[in-house]
């Protein structure tokens, strides 16, 4: 079937049809992302002080990815311009670079950014227990300088302390490459605790235990989660340090300091996954959907670079128009990122 006006402009609109089509699609995309950003505003404004975190994302990596997307926006225009000037070799070059940039963006997101979040541990402390963990939260200091309180202790989960049937715990540890150690009771009320039976720590000396595995263990019948053994993030290890009053460009990372957090003092805990908080729920929703758009763009570009480029021989102007339309989509994806980057990484 021949679609009319794929090269020539339709007399009434003054446009070739695909161009009007892509703009209608982009208009609907504006409303789609608009709805998600509206949800972001609701959730952020509705968050209690301290419950909208800042500085959990890696700003240098985010900046790098922003520059990669901007650069690819230039190269995709150059690919289109090359076709318009009938320089096919240039088209292949610029389109190739655009595809590499899009793929690079996704690789950075999927191999560096997301996995770092999936393995990071965070525990929201019950409001009435904040003072007990003052050494890690530093809320007196933050109140003095009129900053929102710290409500979470985060870091690398070294191990979890559990009570229950030793054989069951050993089985779980063995299946997951972890070890079990009997540990002594500690902290306030330890005399009471000792009556409840021995305490075991399930851990991995080098790699720690992933929050996902800890969750699995805690859900086994007869296993009671007692405490978390956490290698603290720098701002929790030294919470009154002025350098951590606000987020830093270079993330300070983990400290050497370890802390035991009692499970009964924790309101909720998980890895930095969507269920962690409304912040991460919106972050993964919006960046995930944006990432799918990048993937879609890369696939379309790969087709136009590879088999689709054969159209050049038959009708170069048609291929130029296709690339222009795909490019418009690509710029829109870049445009969404220009808002996502400050809203999630910086502000």
């Amino acid at each position: 079937m021949q679609i009319p006006y794929e090269v020539q402009a339709r007399p009434d609109t003054g446009l070739y049809n695909a161009k009007l089509g892509i703009w209608l699609f982009l208009a609907s995309e504006v409303m789609l992302f608009g709805g998600l950003f509206s949800a972001y505003i609701f959730l952020r404004m509705g968050a209690e002080p301290g419950f909208w975190p800042l500085g959990l994302l890696n700003v240098p990596i985010g900046t790098f990815n922003t520059i990669v997307l901007i650069f690819s926006s230039v190269t995709v225009v150059l690919a289109w311009a090359s076709l318009k000037m009938r320089k096919f070799a240039d088209y292949k070059k610029w389109m190739g670079i655009t595809i590499v940039c899009g793929a690079l963006f996704l690789i950075v997101k999927l191999t560096l950014e997301y996995p770092a979040k999936f393995s990071h541990f965070g525990a929201y402390i019950e409001k009435d227990k904040w003072s007990k963990y003052e050494d890690y939260l530093g809320n007196k200091h933050l109140a003095e300088i009129k900053r929102p309180p710290r409500v979470e202790i985060s870091g690398h989960l070294h191990g979890v302390e559990v009570r229950g049937d030793r054989a069951v715990i050993e089985d779980f540890a063995k299946a997951n490459g972890l070890v079990v150690k009997e540990v002594s009771h500690h902290g306030e009320g330890h005399a009471e605790d000792e009556k409840k039976g021995p305490l075991y720590e399930v851990l991995h000396e080098k790699k720690g235990i992933s929050p996902a595995k800890a969750e699995k263990l805690s859900k086994i019948k007869g296993v009671e989660l007692v405490a978390f053994d956490v290698q603290l993030d720098a701002h929790n290890a030294d919470p009154t340090n002025k350098n951590y009053d606000r987020a830093n460009f270079i993330p300070p990372g983990l400290s050497e300091k370890r802390a035991i957090i009692k499970a009964e003092d924790v309101h909720s805990w998980s890895a930095f996954v969507p269920k962690h908080s409304t912040y991460f729920a919106t972050y993964f929703m919006i960046t995930g959907l944006h990432g799918l758009h990048v993937l879609g763009g890369v696939l379309v570009f790969a087709y136009f670079w590879g088999p689709g480029a054969a159209l050049y021989r038959k009708n170069p102007e048609h291929l130029a128009n296709r690339v222009e339309v795909a490019g418009l989509f690509w710029h829109f994806v870049d445009l969404v990122w220009i808002f996502v980057f400050p809203l999630f990484y910086l502000l």
Partner: peptide, 14 residues
């Protein structure tokens, strides 16, 4: 010379 199969020269806006 590069594209012997291309029958079209650059359009007027090139």
């Amino acid at each position: 010379a590069h594209e012997p199969h291309d029958p079209h020269a650059p359009p007027h806006d090139a």
